[in-house]
Design a protein around this nucleic acid. Structure first.
Lengths: 143, 143
DNA sequence: CTCACACCCTGAAGCTACTATAGAGTCAAG
DNA sequence: CTTGACTCTATAGTAGCTTCAGGGTGTGAG
């Protein structure tokens, strides 16, 4: 099948497919006489795997590791389990950060209930005077 | 004061300060005879404002909007309130996404309890066969 | 046979919010 | 007069794509 069909089945754009190939996540397919990429079912399976990992917000680095493990039939899957645990840790950390953020934003929001001149707006005042504690280093790759 | 001092007080690097200036978030300061940037208290206040907004994960676009409102003394703060509400919406949306993600990851993690040959690993099998529902468009800029 | 049109190709630039590097200049203290 | 901390500009890199420019391929209609 050609790249458009592959992308449609795997729910991503052709540009994304080509990008994964350039990144080495997806192997280079055969080409037709007219230089079009020609994919088989094994490419589709691999692309699905990648998209599923991305849907779980894994990085390309994490995905690359998983693919390497899969490509080594003799290997055990301990590394996979560890990677997943770590990734769950990232998600937990980010959730905690966002909950705290939400609380701060809620407090700020309460400081202005109605439209007023900007000089009187409690939100803007809060944003000027807030003391943001030194932002800690990130424990997650999630934005 | 010079850029190093400004950065130290506002808890950011000098590169970040120069970047904000290039982005137009921070006005260009005067220069000394030796071409060093020379800041006053109004710059510090503005930089603090920006850093506080960033600590709340606002984008430069959102911050730019807030700064424009502040620079228009005649304006009302309705836009500010709306922007904050929207931003709180972003945070809520991202938290919901991550909670769902966490659940999916937890389920996946249960499918392999101990190290085994990769062919038998339930996690890898799950990642191959998962049907990721077409990822909905993002309602948030938060990663 | 020729045309239109959908699809495909490559390579480069753009996005966000910075961070890092190179190579040069400034300034105060010893 | 030299050392060392600081500053300057300009450029490239990060992640994971998306968009664009400028072309080539393939198929159905007239």
């Amino acid at each position: 099948m050609k790249i458009g069909e592959l992308g449609q089945i795997a729910q991503c754009t052709v540009e994304t497919v080509r990008y994964y190939e350039k990144e080495g996540l997806l192997p280079q397919p055969e080409r037709t006489a007219g230089n079009f990429r020609s994919y088989g079912p094994q490419h589709l399976e691999r692309l699905r795997f990648i998209r599923n990992c991305r849907a779980l917000d894994m990085t390309h680095g994490e995905i690359r590791t998983l693919l390497e493990v899969m490509d080594a039939p003799a290997a055990g899957c301990g590394r996979v389990n560890a990677l997943l645990d770590e990734h769950i840790g990232h998600v937990d950390a980010r959730i905690a950060e966002l909950m705290q953020l939400k609380q701060q934003l809620g407090e700020l929001r309460h400081q202005c209930q109605a439209e007023q001149p900007v000089a009187a707006c409690g939100i803007l005042q809060g944003l000027v005077s807030m003391e943001s504690e030194a932002r800690q280093e990130r424990h997650t790759h999630l934005g």
